[in-house]
């Protein structure tokens, strides 16, 4: 037990030092870098290491007679989590999510501290001491809090009304934007009605000319960070026929029309992307086209930002309705290319 705990303590100390060092620039910030593609699990893993480390540390300190009181353990842990979320995770997490995580952490610490009667007593003793104010120190603290808490609240309230940022503009209000609106049951493009639930991409076809997703999946780029092309499946091979040829033609249309905004890597960071707010959709994200049916993309591309349903207001999309510029076939080919290039498969419902 003791050996295990001392290992934990060592891990805890090292991890904390590395974290602090990285944040304050003592060692390069990329010493332990976030591995793209594994970041969600990495974050959980790192937190687990810290928890294990702190457990070991507290055990060792306790056995050396330097007990950290329950109260400070709790406060310290909350502070650590807030600090971690703010400084470790990059790009920065929006405040709303950090507030949510912070609240949950506080609830968790409360649950931990009050899980048995003894701990709970230890935890609340310092608070009660201050409230009772029996010693001069506690009395002083009590007076301090009496003044500091209202002052702090006032400060927060004031701060939230003060214009912030460069040029001291008032922030735009937060918009609750739904990324995937509910599509209509059917859509009419160039005089033809497409039922979204049942329509199929005519170019996702096998050599016999039949719709075949299994066939096209086999020829798609590898779905990984490297985005490697499948062997013997190069759409730019002049001999490529059928599906691959359609992908190439879709690619040509993409680079003539779409890549200015959606980027040549399809990650929503094209030449003009940052002129828009929000920036265009990132197709490489698992939360966009990978979650949707091909017909959904077809509908969005053809109708653009103007054709978004009224229920989905507020709509912040300047995508033109591409049906005015492209033929139906061209739109299907672009959709085909987007899936091919990102390595995702369109969603199906069976």
């Amino acid at each position: 037990m003791k050996a295990l705990m001392s290992v934990g303590a060592v891990v805890g100390v090292i991890a904390s030092l590395v974290l602090l060092g990285m944040i304050f620039g003592v060692i390069p910030a990329s010493t332990v870098h976030l591995v793209e593609g594994y970041m969600p699990m990495q974050m959980l893993f790192e937190l687990s290491i810290f928890v294990a480390g702190f457990t070991g540390l507290s055990y060792m300190l306790n056995s050396m007679g330097m007990t950290i009181s329950r109260f400070w353990q709790g406060i310290g842990f909350v502070a650590f989590i807030l600090f971690y979320l703010k400084s470790r995770i990059y790009p920065p997490i929006p405040f709303s999510v950090r507030a949510m995580y912070g609240t949950v952490t506080m609830v968790a610490v409360f649950m931990w501290m009050s899980s048995n009667e003894e701990d709970w007593k230890k935890f609340r003793q310092p608070i009660l001491n201050v409230m009772d104010g029996l010693t001069p120190l506690h009395k002083g603290l009590r007076t301090f809090f009496l003044i500091a808490i209202p002052l702090g609240l006032w400060g927060f309230a004031y701060q939230s009304f003060v214009p912030q940022g460069a040029g001291a503009d008032v922030d735009e209000p937060i918009e609750l934007r739904t990324v995937h609106p509910a599509p209509p049951a059917s859509t009419k493009v160039h005089g033809k009605t497409f039922v979204l639930q049942t329509s199929q991409n005519p170019y996702r076809a096998n050599p016999e000319g039949k719709y075949d997703q299994e066939y096209s999946n086999k020829l798609i780029v590898e779905q990984s960070m490297g985005r490697l092309m499948q062997e013997n499946a190069n759409p730019w091979d002049p001999k490529a026929e059928g599906y691959l040829k359609n992908v190439r033609e879709g690619g040509e249309i993409f680079f003539q029309n779409c890549h200015f905004c959606h980027g040549d890597n399809l990650n929503g960071r094209g030449l003009h992307a940052f002129a828009f707010n929000p920036i265009p959709a990132n197709f490489t994200d698992p939360g966009t086209i990978a979650q949707l049916q091909e017909t959904f993309i077809f509908w969005r591309v053809s109708k653009g930002g103007l054709g978004l349903p009224r229920e989905g207001f507020p709509w912040a999309s300047v995508m033109p309705p591409w049906e005015q510029h492209l033929t139906t076939d061209e739109i299907w080919k672009v959709v085909l290319f987007e899936y091919w290039h990102t390595g995702y498969y369109p969603r199906t419902w069976d």
């Binding site: 976030l34 793209e36 970041m39 969600p40 974050m43 995770i89 790009p91 920065p92 997490i93 929006p94 405040f95 709303s96 999510v97 949510m100 949950v104 940022g165 922030d171 735009e172 937060i174 609750l176 934007r177 739904t178 990324v179 929503g268 960071r269 940052f274 707010n277 929000p278 920036i279 959709a281 990132n282 994200d285 698992p286 939360g287 966009t288 979650q291």
Partner: peptide, 30 residues
Amino acid sequence: FITPHTMVMTPAELKAMGGQQHPVLGNYGV
């Protein structure tokens, strides 16, 4: 479980994050 797929954020935060999806937390949203 509670990480939203679409996060509530100010436009400034949106710009700082560089897109609607967060590379770490966005993955919790699906």
